[in-house]
Nucleic acid binder design. Structure first.
Length: 815
DNA sequence: GAGCACTGC
């Protein structure tokens, strides 16, 4: 079963206007027109962008970056992965586009040619819907603003259509064409390059990037991504890039843009970058905005003088700080300019263009949602939610499902129990209730139940963590119950541990939750807190950059030549202490020189899709030989995805799984257990899904593990750390000592030793730490442990634990 | 005896 298809991510807005809740996501581009064979026309006849074309003259299509190889490479064929149909879009087009020869591509492009008419018809139909989007009337205004100015801030409320329409408004603007220009290289020589031609739109999540690309391709009447060399819309997310030589609108994840910037710091491919969903404020978006500010407030030397347009879009109206942020950049630039002018005669560049920032506010299209506050403070929100749920159920008409926001799996399950219990004694004349839990750790099949319509005369009650706040859209909801809290992960740099704490949400999160009730009809939102409490909430979410370990972000910046971290334009500056902690961490793993500049090791690590620490481990393992590296890659792959081991919900299941898992457990600890698991899974050729189920191992997680493993292996081969020929047939016994010693090169400070009272104390800091119950070493006593994570929930836990010897730790700490 | 949510050439 395709797993993610039915989840309507589409994110906060811009979803296709009508989505039948129970219809499977349509294979938009791949299928239609299969029976249409009459259209013999050539590629020229591909539809123009906006069906009734306005003032946009279609740009003659000249592939702007011919030299680039097609991005959708699937470098190696690994043994088939049964049931891996996860990436619906990515896997749907089997053939790569013919890359360098546009003209002799008969067999593969045949489908595309015949499709163009139907694609165009579809686009024409969609055009009618697009015209009704609130943003549509602002098209001219937006274009005008961006002709005059390079930076635009756009507040687009939920349902305004910004993510799908903005790129289409801009793609045919004159400034969006590829421009031939010259740059001066380091050696002083001039070089001709093409700059621009493409618009990038960043998204915080992969699913959003892919589904938006699919939608925009439909609206533009063009095939999607690599399915045709004439495709104008593509996307790029980790493990799945689908673009063509003529891609002009590209949706990508923030992380992907950062990666592109490592190789192309001037973003020469792009005429514009649209940063969507800034209000979510993940670390990556903060880095992206920082780099973009530097780009727009410089002389565009690396772009041959061609300016980059930047559109920053947010659903919440915290635009003043963003405006100030970009203005500050222009101000600094002007000052710099002045200083130069004083010495020389140049400096006419900015004449005629006011370097200012335009702001645009688009009202959303949402149904009204009535807010009902709790008259008094609530002490037990599970109990309060129970009462409200039945109050709604008794009083409010059908249809109208209820979505309840809770803090975590524990509260979800507690309330699930209570509601079911309470429902037994319900008046049989009333409609039934169907209680559905929803949280990330829930097996995929159980998550899918949330998207199925309720049986007749039944009200769906979805009990969710904040997964439903941004990542997943449940249809049919007219009532939201919001407990006003969420679990938030906070990295405490002083202690070097992550804490998972229940905290009040922000106003903007509360608004977001409330909005979930008004997507299909007017709704109601019951807040389990008083209005007074609401008013005391923070305006916005705490940016992640203030809550996480910064070592990766810093290494990223260092790799791009930002040596002076203090002068980097942070949207929100992280406290000095956490910056220092991260620098120290990078020094410890030799990613930085004593001077603070990036080392060779650091440069290498920065290119890996891993935390610096895991990157360091990988390089250390390479020193221990190819076999050790291969094994360590397997383990690292597990560590960089969600938990691969699942929990049984019933006792018998648990027992059965324990028995089946027994042969995977290794007394050395979790790392070697993971290795055994990956090896066994990879060796299973018959039915991996069944194997995973038997062992109570998450098949979905293992698929990600295999993706990461493949990616890391490819990278290691390219870096000559692994031999070029892949030998899947030889599996020498792993060497636990070498493997664990490799890990200690990155995790020497994540170690604890057994003290006489039977507890573990960290080697650095002497804090008490307990082995997490999910570990195979739980309850075991060994000389010393090394762990990947130090987390605080109800107490301090070490997760990802292996037994090590104190003298190894000593060696590793000594360097 | 325990698991907020995302993400990377």
């Amino acid at each position: 079963m395709p797993e993610k298809v039915k989840t309507y991510f589409g994110d906060s807005d811009d979803e296709p206007v009508k989505q039948a809740p129970n219809a499977p996501a349509e294979p938009a581009i791949e299928e239609p027109g299969r029976k249409k064979k009459r259209n013999k026309k050539r590629k020229r006849d591909e539809p123009t962008d906006e069906p009734p074309s306005r003032d946009d003259k279609p740009v003659t299509q000249e592939a702007p970056h011919k030299s680039k190889s097609p991005t959708n490479e699937k470098p190696e064929s690994i043994p088939e992965q049964p049931g891996n149909e996860d990436n619906v879009v990515g896997k749907a087009h089997p053939g790569k586009p013919p890359s360098n020869s546009k003209h002799n591509s008969k067999p593969k492009s045949l489908d595309n040619k015949t499709n163009f008419t139907s694609l165009r018809e579809k686009a024409n139909t969609l055009y009618e819907q697009r015209k009704k989007l609130p943003i549509f009337g602002h098209s001219d205004e937006i274009r005008k603003k961006l002709r005059d100015q390079d930076v635009m801030l756009l507040v687009g409320e939920t349902g305004s259509g910004k993510s799908t329409q903005i790129p289409q408004f801009l793609v045919n603007e004159f400034w969006c064409r590829p421009t031939d220009t010259k740059i001066t290289q380091k050696d002083g020589k001039e070089k001709s390059i093409k700059v621009g031609g493409c618009i990038a739109i960043t998204q915080p999540r992969r699913v959003a990037a892919i589904s938006l690309a699919r939608r925009v391709a439909e609206e533009m009447g063009t095939p999607l991504g690599s399915s045709s060399p004439a495709s104008k819309v593509g996307y790029s997310v980790r493990f799945d890039t689908s673009t063509s030589p003529s891609t002009r609108v590209k949706f990508l994840t923030e992380g992907m843009l950062l990666q592109e910037m490592l190789h192309d710091p001037w973003l020469t491919k792009y005429s514009a970058v649209v940063v969507d969903e800034v209000h979510e404020r993940g670390v990556n978006v903060d880095l992206v905005t920082g780099f973009l500010r530097n780009l727009v407030s410089c002389d565009n030397q690396g772009r041959g003088g061609v300016p980059l347009k930047v559109v920053v879009m947010s659903a919440t109206a915290d635009m003043e700080s963003l405006q100030g942020f970009f203005q500050e950049g222009f101000k600094l630039q002007a000052e710099e300019q002045k200083r130069i002018e004083n010495g020389s005669a140049k400096g006419e560049k900015e004449n005629g263009v006011t370097k200012d920032i335009s702001v645009c506010h688009i009202k959303g299209r949402q149904f009204s949602v009535k807010t009902i506050y709790s008259p008094e403070p609530v002490h037990d929100f599970v109990d309060a939610a129970l009462k409200i749920i039945f109050q709604i159920h008794y009083k409010e008409p059908m249809p109208g499902d209820i979505l309840v926001f809770l803090t975590g799996q524990e509260t979800v399950e507690a309330l699930e129990h209570l509601v079911n219990e309470y429902a037994i004694d319900m008046d049989p004349a009333l409609p039934k209730v169907q209680v559905l839990p929803l949280f990330a750790a829930l097996p995929q099949a159980a998550q899918q139940r949330v998207f199925m319509p309720a049986p007749p005369r039944t009200r769906k009650i979805v009990l969710s963590t904040n997964i439903a706040e941004t990542s997943v859209t449940v249809s049919g909801v007219r009532y939201v119950v919001d407990c006003g809290k969420a679990k938030i992960k906070q990295f405490r740099s002083r202690l070097g541990l992550d804490s998972l704490l229940v905290k009040p949400i922000s106003k903007s999160a509360a608004i977001q939750r409330k909005g979930r009730a008004g997507r299909e009809a007017p709704g109601q939102c019951f807040r389990l807190y008083t209005e007074k409490d609401y008013l005391t909430l923070d305006e916005t979410n705490t940016p992640e950059i203030l809550r996480c370990d910064l070592s990766q972000a810093l290494l990223n910046m260092k790799a791009r030549g930002v040596d002076d971290i203090v002068r980097f334009p942070f949207l929100t500056r992280p406290p000095r202490e956490s910056l220092e902690k991260a620098l120290l961490q990078l020094l410890n793993i030799e990613a930085l020189e004593e001077t603070g500049s990036i080392s060779e090791i650091g440069r290498h690590i920065a290119k890996l899709p891993l935390t610096p620490t895991l990157g360091r481990v990988l390089l250390a393992a390479a020193e221990n030989g190819a076999d050790c590296l291969t094994d360590v890659i397997d383990i690292i792959s597990c560590l960089s995805v969600e938990n691969i081991f699942m929990n049984a919900n019933s006792e018998e299941k648990k027992e059965a799984a324990e028995t089946a898992r027994r042969d995977l457990y290794r007394r050395e600890g979790d790392h070697l257990t993971m290795l055994a698991t990956v090896r066994a899974y990879a060796a299973e050729h018959a039915d991996r899904k069944a194997w995973a189920e038997r062992h109570l191992v998450s098949h979905r997680a293992m698929q990600s593990v295999m993706d990461v493993r493949k990616q890391l292996r490819t990278q290691c081969r390219q870096a000559k750390l692994l031999p070029g020929d892949q030998r899947n047939d030889h599996f020498p016994d792993p060497s636990p000592v070498l493997i664990l010693q490799s890990f200690l090169r990155g995790f020497a400070t994540n170690t604890a030793r057994l003290v006489p009272d039977g507890s573990y104390r960290t080697v650095v800091g002497n804090q008490t730490v307990a082995i997490h119950p999910s570990s195979v070493l739980f309850g075991k006593k060994v000389e010393a442990i090394m762990y990947n994570e130090f987390v605080f929930t109800n107490r301090s836990y070490a997760r990802g634990v292996s037994a090590v010897q104190m003298d190894w730790v000593g060696e590793a700490l000594a360097g």
